[in-house]
Design a protein around this nucleic acid. Sequence first.
DNA 1: CACAAGTTTCAGGAATTACTGAAAATTGAA
DNA 2: TTCAATTTTCAGTAATTCCTGAAACTTGTG
Lengths: 185, 185
Amino acid sequence: MTPLVRSFVSHFGEMGSRWGINRTVGQIYALIYVSAEPINADQIAEELEFSRSNVSMGLKELQAWRLVRLRHFPNDRREYFEAPGDAWEVFRTLAEERRRREIEPTLSMLRAALMDDAASAEDRHAQERMRDMHGLIEQLTNWFDDIQRLDSATLSKLMGMGSTVHKLLDFTDKIKRATGAKPRT
Amino acid sequence: MTPLVRSFVSHFGEMGSRWGINRTVGQIYALIYVSAEPINADQIAEELEFSRSNVSMGLKELQAWRLVRLRHFPNDRREYFEAPGDAWEVFRTLAEERRRREIEPTLSMLRAALMDDAASAEDRHAQERMRDMHGLIEQLTNWFDDIQRLDSATLSKLMGMGSTVHKLLDFTDKIKRATGAKPRT
DNA sequence: CACAAGTTTCAGGAATTACTGAAAATTGAA
DNA sequence: TTCAATTTTCAGTAATTCCTGAAACTTGTG
C-alpha cells in the first residue's frame, strides 16, 4: 500500500467509531473504495493484516450497508468486491440505511408513546415534548424522501441555488398573488 | 418515573450507541428533555440509578454537544439542566456538531491527500476517487450551510414544497429562456 | 479565612465489543 | 458424489469503553 492510500485507509479506521462502524470495517471500505480494480477477501486481509475471518465479517457488514458490491470473474471462484462509483448513489444509500436504523425505531417508539393516555400532568407534558420531536423528525424525513426522489441533475441544480432558494419562494408568492391564486400559507 | 417516561428514556439509552453517544448520556438527555422543569444532577442520578460521577460526565458531554443548557435558581447553589425546546434549534445544533466532529476531519484529510503528488497509476486512481468524495462532501455541506441560514419560516415553506421543487426549477428555466437570459447549466 | 455544599477527576474493576484461529459449511468442478 | 477451494461461524481471548467510589477540587457564605 502506498503512503497515500495508507493514510486514507487509516483515517477511515479512526473515524469508523464516530460513524457507527468499527475500525476494521472502515478500513476495509476505504481500501475497496480507492482500489482501481475489484479486490478479494484474501487481498484485503493481506493488505490490512487482519485475520481472514475478520475480513469476512467486515464484508458482510458492508454488504448489509449496501456499500460494496459483489463481482465475479471467469474461472475464479473467489468473490471480488468493489464500491459503487457514483458518489450520489453512495450518499443516498447511506442516508437510507441510517434512516432505517437510527430514525425509524425512534419514530415507532414515539408513535406508540403518543397513543398511551397520559394520566398525570407530568405525562401530559412529556407527551407534548414527544409530539414536538415526532413532528420534526417526520417533517425532516418526508422532505428527505421528496429530495431523494429527484434525479441527480435536478438535485445538483437545487443545491447550486443554495440559499437563494428563498428569493425563488418570494417570487412565486408574488406571481400567485398577482394572478389571484391562493397564496401559500 | 412513570412508565411513559421510562420507555422514552430507555429507548434513548438503547439507541445511544447507534447515535454515537453512550447509554448513560442518551438516558440523561431523554430525562432532561421530557422534564417539565429543569433538574439537577442528584435528581438525575437518583431517577436513573447512575452514580453521581457518571451523571457528571454525561452532563459534561451533553454540554459539549450543546444539547442541554445550565440554569440556576436563587438561593440554590446546585446546577439545573434543561433541554432547549425549539426542535429546529436542536436539529441545527446536532447537525453543526456532527459536521464538526464527523465531517470536517475527513475533509481536511482529503484536502491534504489531494495536495500530494501521486507517483504511481494506483495513486492517481486513488486520488481521483478521493476527489469525487471531497467534491460531494463539499457540495453537501455548502448546501447545508445555506439551508441552515434560512429562518424557520422559510425553511418550513421549502420543506412543504417537497419534491415539487423541481417544477419550480423547470418553471424558472422557461422564464429565463423566454426572456433571453442565459439558461442554467 | 474556614467550612460546607456541590462538582469533577481518576484509577481500577465491570461490561461490552472486536478479533482470532480452528472447525464447519458451502460451492463449483471433475 | 467427491474433492478441493473458498467462505462463514463461533467460542474464547484481547482490546476497548463504560461506570463507580473515593479523593480532590471549586465556589459561595458566614
